[in-house]
Nucleic acid binder design. Structure first.
Length: 586
RNA sequence: GCGCUUGUAGCUCAGCCGGAUAGAGCAUCGGCCUUCUAAGCCGAGGGUCGCAGGUUCGAGUCCUGCCAGGCGCGCCA
């Protein structure tokens, strides 16, 4: 309907332009918006006020001219000029009711569109280091990324969901060393655990599994392990130096073959856990992209070569630098360290080169907000590689600050004292967790009060929306119990019987759904959908309390049933996009 | 210090690339179950949209400055 009105308006403006009444630069000014107040009609246009100045004409007079130039349309009952120069459109209810039949006909497909048809978009999200289980901070990225991806798909994009697995680098070596040391404990060796090692219980589990499966194959005597190591922090040493020395010791003592096995034991086990965890959270990927595979395929080298060829690489202090400042970054970035090792950023250059080469029309990265300083250098790299930096969209997700009542919960992967996503799901359930995570703007800080979210009977809004769905289902069950049959066709014929305020409002809200989906998708803003669903549920609950649906008048009854069935369908569709279930009973 | 970001009701937050009288939930107070699920509904109170300027027909929304909070500023990942 909105688009239909825009077409009318555009035609009117073209007619006026042809008649020389207004300047010819008015094309972009066609904007139709929904009114907040029904007294202002159903839709309004502010075009006359925007055009008043360039047309050198009083806005209300101009509005008159536009109105008289509007083509006839059966759906528009009348227009009026209001306020400073708004053009208000009043829509024939019969045209509005049509949405109910459309919802009926399209079912789960209603609300989908083709806005992004023909475009391939990659959405990379979570991508947490596989050094431990996902915690509640990752949960927000998982929920947000999954919904953004689903929304994009709903509006026609070809979506590729990807998890970048940081399975190379120092942190993974530290994990491997941690697993090994716990394994040695299983073997009966007595040795101190590094203060900078991964202390989580899951490391012990991996080690125990390794010991069960492989016996003593990786056992080295404690005195040999501890020989020639610098002091750890408790002994007045440096914990970083100590852990690095320990990693080297593990590699030397085990040899590359056995070290790789221990390394893989940790990586595989944790990655499996992450995969299961996300799967149970309703988050699925087309691809798990390994950082290690880039290194092994020589892609990092190739990325460096390509950057060099672009002329943005120079040498200083024995290191190789990327001159990202020339492309808008704050400072230049090291690609290859003085010691010859490439940086994490060099891997990321290779990864983004890979993304470019895969030919996505749009590349969406969902990162924790603490990475925001990282954006300029990646965009700079893309530009230097000859890509279009505007193709890359980085969406930041603020970490949720976790509370237990008044008390703030500290999180640290290293210390092992964190609340995992799995724990959260077990406590509040997938539905509440999903809904809770995406109901706020993603780049906004979020206080996640476990006490509040875990109180099932409390004010968690997910139940409010689900309850509306269950109530509709309940009405249909009641219909059966009364032995009444629903006549769908008769209901559609009788829609004009829906004259109650609540009914007219509901029809209007239902017709907004496709716009909301498109808005939420194109702005990467699932919270719009959440708020819409709450509004829809609220209108329904109000309707439920003010009108009886199962009335003796069969015409009216069927009309109302068609309306609430449409409400049910939209709630189911919307919750589906959020990854939240729509229960038939509660 | 520099960069990014946030500031809206007692609390948690919406406010759809500038629109008509700034909204919701929770909390508080008062009502509604012999009729389709009370996880619900109806009503009331509660606001200097951080502060000060500016842009224009019109500003919570855009610009500048200031105040306050958060994050980021490694040859870490």
């Amino acid at each position: 309907m909105k688009k239909r009105l825009e077409t009318l308006l555009r035609t009117a403006l073209e007619r006026l332009q042809a008649a020389g009444e207004i300047p010819t630069t008015a094309e972009a000014l066609v904007q139709i918006e929904r009114t907040r107040d029904p007294a202002h009609g159903d839709f309004a246009a502010n075009t006359a006020m925007l055009l008043a100045k360039p047309a050198r004409c009083n806005p209300r007079q101009l509005a008159e001219k536009i109105c008289s130039a509007l083509p006839d349309d059966s759906a528009v009952i009348r227009t009026e000029i209001a306020g400073p120069g708004f053009i208000n459109f009043f829509i024939d209810p019969a045209a509005q009711y049509r949405v109910i039949a459309e919802i009926q006909a399209q079912g789960p497909g209603f609300g989908r569109s083709k806005a992004g048809a023909g475009q391939r978009v990659q959405v990379e999200f979570v991508s947490a280091n596989p050094t431990g289980p996902l915690h509640v901070g990752h949960g927000r990225g998982a929920a947000y990324g999954a919904v953004v991806a689903d929304l994009l798909e709903a509006v026609g994009f070809d979506v590729h969901r990807e998890y970048y697995v940081n399975d190379a680098g120092r942190q993974m070596d530290i994990l491997a060393a941690s697993v090994w040391l716990r394994y040695l404990e299983n073997c009966g060796e007595v040795l101190p655990f590094p203060s900078n090692g991964y202390r989580g219980e899951y490391v012990r589990d991996v080690a125990a599994d390794l010991h069960r499966a492989q016996g003593e194959r990786y056992r080295i005597a404690a005195n040999e392990v501890l020989a020639d190591l610098p002091p750890d922090e408790p002994e007045g040493g440096d914990k970083e130096e100590y852990i690095d020395a320990m990693v080297r010791k593990a590699k030397d003592a085990l040899g590359s073959e056995r070290y790789r096995k221990v390394f893989a034991a940790g990586l595989d086990s944790i990655l499996d856990d992450i995969r299961d965890d996300l799967g149970e959270f309703g988050t699925h990927y087309q691809e798990w992209f390994s950082e290690l595979s880039l290194t092994e395929a020589g892609a990092v080298e190739r990325g460096l070569e390509k950057l060099k060829a672009s002329g943005y690489v120079y040498e200083k202090d024995g290191a190789q630098w990327f001159a990202s400042t020339r492309l808008g970054d704050e400072k230049d970035r090291v690609l290859v360290r003085e010691n010859g090792q490439t940086t994490y950023f060099a891997s990321d250059v290779a990864y983004h080169l890979n993304k470019l080469e895969r030919g996505f029309d749009r590349i969406v990265n969902i990162w924790g907000a603490d990475h925001h300083g990282y954006i300029p250098r990646v965009k700079a790299a893309i530009q230097a590689l000859g890509g279009d930096a505007d193709k890359l969209e980085v969406l930041l997700v603020q970490f949720a600050v976790l509370y237990r009542g008044e008390e703030r919960v500290q999180m640290s992967t290293r210390s092992g004292e964190f609340v995992t996503l799995r724990q959260l799901r077990n406590e509040v359930g997938k539905d509440a967790a999903r809904f809770f995570y995406v109901m706020r703007k993603s780049d906004q800080h979020m206080d996640f009060d476990l006490k509040l979210a875990t109180s099932r009977t409390n004010e968690n809004p997910v139940y409010y929306v689900q309850y509306a769905h269950a109530r509709v289902c309940s009405v249909f069950r009641q219909l059966d119990e009364k032995g009444w049959a629903r006549d769908l066709g008769r209901g559609m014929q009788q829609l004009e019987r829906l004259n109650e305020t609540h009914e007219l409002a509901l029809v209007g809200t239902l017709s907004r759904y496709p716009e909301i989906v498109e808005l939420a998708a194109l702005q990467y803003a699932p919270h719009h959908l959440v708020h819409y669903l709450r509004d829809l549920a609220a209108e329904f609950h109000g309707y439920y309390n003010s009108c009886q649906f199962l009335v003796d008048d069969g015409d009216l009854r069927d009309a109302r049933l068609n309306l609430i069935d449409a409400v049910r369908q939209i709630i189911a569709n919307g919750l589906g996009l959020l990854g939240v279930s729509a229960p038939e009973t509660m």
